[in-house]
Design a protein around this nucleic acid. Sequence first.
DNA 1: CATCAAAATGAGAACGTTCTCATTGGAGTG
DNA 2: CACTCCAATGAGAACGTTCTCATTTTGATG
Lengths: 335, 335
Amino acid sequence: MPKHPTIVDVARLAGVSTATVGRVINGQDDIVREKTRRRVLEAISQLGYERNSVAGSLRTDRTCMIALSIPDITNPFWPEVARGVQDTLEAHDYTVVTVNSDWDAARELRYLKMVRRNRFDGLIINPTDANLTDFHSMGIPIVILGSEEGYPNYDSVGSATTQAVQEALEYLYRLGHRRIGLIAGRSRRRRSTNRYHPYVDFLARKQLRLDEALIVHSEFSLQAGASAMRELLSLREPPSAVFAANDIIAIGAMQTAQAMGWRIPEQLSIIGMDNVYAAATTSPPLTTIAKPKYEIGVRAADMLLARLGGDDSPARHIQLACTLIERGSTAAPGC
Amino acid sequence: MPKHPTIVDVARLAGVSTATVGRVINGQDDIVREKTRRRVLEAISQLGYERNSVAGSLRTDRTCMIALSIPDITNPFWPEVARGVQDTLEAHDYTVVTVNSDWDAARELRYLKMVRRNRFDGLIINPTDANLTDFHSMGIPIVILGSEEGYPNYDSVGSATTQAVQEALEYLYRLGHRRIGLIAGRSRRRRSTNRYHPYVDFLARKQLRLDEALIVHSEFSLQAGASAMRELLSLREPPSAVFAANDIIAIGAMQTAQAMGWRIPEQLSIIGMDNVYAAATTSPPLTTIAKPKYEIGVRAADMLLARLGGDDSPARHIQLACTLIERGSTAAPGC
DNA sequence: CATCAAAATGAGAACGTTCTCATTGGAGTG
DNA sequence: CACTCCAATGAGAACGTTCTCATTTTGATG
């Protein structure tokens, strides 16, 4: 493979200086004669010249590359978020490097170092453990995916989880359910209050008695959801409906209830959250609260683009509304 | 944010030349005195110096970055492949940029240009339309994901689809099915022969009559699978089992059969291919042929690493074996 | 023609690292 | 001590682009 032609080669062939070639390839047409410009473009075409971004980046201290750090691309929630980020940033000629933290702090820190070493222009991150000091040392714009808790001075985009929980519970209440179980998630970063408190508030508002036995804390997996459901269905007075912290938990819970002989939704209603692909393909299909995954990605990328463009206004925190998706896993009790 | 310290700063503080600093940070400990090395490391620590990969890349003509081009990260098949590539290459200090071709030739070409412009070291690609000329002009090692057809001189990794089809059909045959429908996919790149020919060969081997009405060609979506199943079930003599080109088609087909009142698997058995996440969460769970997605990614990355390491042996084509995953969508006919 | 001002172009330093070849330092030997 | 040899270190060019400031060219005017 022959060496790539450089602007020195182009300049020689076109009979101009490298500064003039630079002006042409960077679109400074207002200060280059049309005749000169044409000579340069002809030389570029003849040589098959293509700009070397590495060299440009060294000079300008801009790589036009950003990193997206998510927990795991194989988790069904994240591909759409990633896709929103990629589409938006690529449309502005940025290149996106996607990395997987696996909820591991040391791994995340290694990625932060990689971002610094490569002089990436920005970072979009669903943090595992990174703290303010880590972020400050990056010296680049950062946008948080998810809750802004702990990062008040950084832009963040998440979903309006409190509103979503209320909506799910209100839906079940309107169907007639009064004894509603909660399979709450266990977040690495937070005390798992984002579904618990809205649940408690809801009960208070409807003047329903809080029964702590109806609340089970669970990891975010099929198996953990299954285990939590077994616990709920072993109660002296099982719930007539269950709201699960996400679809994966809900699917595991639903499959277990069915395996135990419970008819869904006639005997027991189930609602999840996220609207991952598999939620639509269960039987019955899962009623769920859809998080706007792609939109979260798009908005995060928009915010980062604003920062990269020089915006230094105070940090913004966006909570995108979720949508109730009625499918077949919910019905009035005793249907 | 203050300017990043450079090796010039380190050299000054340590009282050595930049060449010595370079030797230390690149691990050439055999030719640097321990005393000198310690002075350099102390200066590095004091200044918080971190290597600038951009500058190093310009000098060495190696970026330690590679691109992975897949059709769409939100398609449930691809995240695991991507994960296999990422894990393997990152373990060797490469950074992976994942891009989505969306089966669009112009888009793919734009990404190839991006790879060249950024001087990436290699490319792993499930091609949409890229041809040999496009690949040759990249001047870097390339590994094909999927069939090697059309790219005999490039390394490739795919799954042994012929063996997989035979295995699925053999399984249905052993269950007692004699009238087996085929919902064949429609590939952009190939004549969709990779499931059709093994199907025909299988029938010949079992001395079963070939009935072309039992073969429907379909796009790779839920809706297309649904439509194909309606066609098969409208036959005068419907099949007792259906083999679908992938899980998404199979799920759409199964849901449609159920909606039409067919009991799965008692009246109709269904097998898919891929073992995507949703296949395990349908009801009944889908019997499928699992493609080793993560392993495909790992092997592709291994091959690329070998090329990056100087291996110039003839191209290799690997077809990884698939695995039958028995779940609840298949049974003996008339069960 | 000469002069002036604005537009067009050129020269070369800068970016931060790596590498090659020259130079220096240190140890061993007579 | 002087000499030799090898290891350790240094000087500076190279990589390919961008940008700043100097120089040249061009067109208008008197």
